[in-house]
């Protein structure tokens, strides 16, 4: 099964990962993390194909991809 893990506390909520995701699996949380941003999380885990596009575009290297 393919999935990703996002470090919520380091995410700055820029949304580049969600924009790059071909299946639009990633959304931004409505809550804030400790540094004051809406963090990204994987909403549709079943649609993840572990393409790694989110990992490539994340400027804060908070994404790990599993397959």
């Amino acid at each position: 099964m393919a999935t990703i893990k996002i470090n919520h506390e380091r995410c700055k909520g820029c949304g580049l990962c969600g924009n790059a995701c071909p299946n639009k699996c990633i959304s931004l949380s409505k809550q804030f993390n400790k540094i004051g941003y809406h963090w990204a999380f994987i909403e549709k885990e079943d649609d993840c194909i572990a393409c790694g596009f989110c990992y490539l575009t994340c400027p804060d290297f908070c994404i790990e991809v599993y397959k």
């Binding site: 099964m1 999935t3 700055k12 820029c14 990992y55 400027p59 994404i63 790990e64």
Partner: peptide, 27 residues
């Protein structure tokens, strides 16, 4: 389930001072 992509060894496990969406982190 194996980890196929994660932070490279040549980067420290710290948060960056760059603004959200900045290209510096990617580079």
């Amino acid at each position: 389930m194996n980890k196929i992509l994660s932070k490279p060894e040549s980067l420290k496990d710290v948060s960056l001072s760059y603004c959200p969406g900045c290209g510096h982190g990617i580079i």
